[in-house]
Design a protein around this nucleic acid. Structure first.
Length: 134
DNA sequence: GCCAACGTTGGC
DNA sequence: GCCAACGTTGGC
């Protein structure tokens, strides 16, 4: 199984929206690196949901429920979407500040490459966040 | 609201 | 194919 992190602006689409809707199409990604990561996702992979900008916290865990398919929001077949379902929220959200100050998490792509919106997370990083958040 | 980082576009 | 100009993201 692989682990990922996806960013969203909570004003646009939040973890709470996902929890309410029970499933969502993660579409509209227009960045090749992010798209390549989405194409590598397998059904059942776990995805950390991170709120950027106003919140700056990892807030919950989602699961890939449908592997990539053409993005329905565009005719350009370069782009893809995946479907996610909520797994569970973190009891304690993990702030960007906390990630930076945690030795095991300080090398995350989230910090190194702040503009990438879909990125792989190592198993160790994923587990660390889960343990900090529970 | 500003600006650094970085991706994309387009002229040459 | 290079690179300057420009646009966007996201932290502060």
């Amino acid at each position: 199984m692989n682990y990922w992190l996806m960013k969203t602006e909570p004003e646009t689409f939040s973890w709470q929206d996902l929890a309410k809707q029970k499933r969502t199409l993660w579409d509209g990604v227009r960045n090749y690196q992010a798209r390549n990561n989405m194409m590598a996702m397998k059904k059942g992979d776990k995805v950390l949901i991170y709120h950027s900008v106003s919140d700056k916290c990892v807030v919950g865990i989602a699961v890939v429920s449908k592997e990539f398919f053409p993005d329905p929001t565009t005719d350009d077949k370069h782009w893809v979407a995946v479907e996610l379902i909520p797994d569970k929220p973190l009891k304690k959200t993990i702030s960007l500040e906390q990630i930076k100050s945690t030795k095991e998490l300080a090398e995350m792509k989230l910090i190194k490459q702040s503009r990438l919106s879909v990125m792989p997370v190592t198993k160790a990083e994923f587990n660390k966040i889960i343990s900090l958040g529970s």
